[in-house]
């Protein structure tokens, strides 16, 4: 049984199919990369998994259980946490309390305030934000706000973490750090699906990659297989070649 499996996931916005009949799965301990040109439906797929949107058709199973009809907070409590393409932190709330939200509400069992605080401090340590714990979250740099989002997601004790363009807008040094962090998350036993445009990062980190284009899955395989796939080169990497020539 796969950890997460989607069957024929379809989402229409009016007449437009943002995601169309996509089958996918991720196994425990895997890092799955999700790539594709802008508007390919990557974030829509994340939104369908995390119940920000209800799929028009298709079903999503988490550990064999159909989670399609569940609301977002239940999905989170079951063990699927996410970050957002544009950071969605609680800007006027201190960093530590941002993370405590995840620990208090997202774990699926009731933690006391003290346990939640301990957990929040622990994950802040992991993302290296301990020094900023009493600062209002809105005052952090973009890179640190992204770390905070990861921390808040981690505080919910996820088995599966959805990272939506974690590395967009980061400096090369920060990208390298983030890649290292993702490897460390896997060592903690967390399975990851990540959307990324920073190619060298996603190619080096992922075990397997799914390529979307116009809402359809056009390729799937190891980074090497995907990079060699003709369709992928045509719709995705091909553009880069044209620009370069």
């Amino acid at each position: 049984m796969h950890l997460l499996e989607g069957k024929g996931v379809t989402k229409y916005f009016g007449g437009l199919a943002a995601v169309s009949g996509v089958d996918f799965y991720v196994d425990k301990g895997e890092i799955l990369g999700l790539i594709g040109p802008n508007g390919a439906g990557k974030t829509t797929l994340f939104n369908a998994i995390s119940a920000a949107l209800k799929p028009t058709r298709g079903k999503i199973f988490f550990k064999g259980r159909d989670i399609t009809p569940l609301p977002a907070y239940r999905i989170c409590r079951l063990g699927i946490a996410r970050t957002f393409q544009t950071v969605k932190i609680f800007p006027h709330v201190p960093v530590i309390r941002n993370v405590m939200v995840g620990a208090l509400f997202g774990t699926g069992h009731r933690l006391s305030a003290r346990e939640a605080l301990k957990k929040a401090e622990e994950v802040l340590e992991f993302v290296d934000l301990t020094d900023y714990k009493d600062v209002p979250a809105g005052d952090l740099t973009l890179a640190n706000q992204k770390r905070l989002e990861v921390a808040r997601a981690l505080a919910t004790d996820p088995e599966l973490l959805l990272l939506d363009e974690l590395m967009a807008g980061l400096t090369p040094t920060e990208v390298a750090e983030a890649s290292g962090d993702i490897q460390q998350l896997r060592q903690r036993g967390i399975t990851i699906i990540m959307i990324e445009h920073v190619m060298q990062a996603i190619m080096s980190v992922s075990d397997r990659i799914i390529v979307l284009d116009y809402g359809k899955k056009i390729a799937e395989g190891t980074p090497q297989e995907v990079a060699a796939n003709e369709k992928v080169i045509e719709v995705y990497l091909g553009e880069e070649c044209d620009v370069a020539s």
């Binding site: 989170c76 609680f90 997202g106 808040r152």
Partner: peptide, 10 residues
């Protein structure tokens, strides 16, 4: 502060 993020945090 951010209703959507609150929902996705459980």
């Amino acid at each position: 502060e951010y209703e959507e993020a609150a929902a996705h945090s459980g």
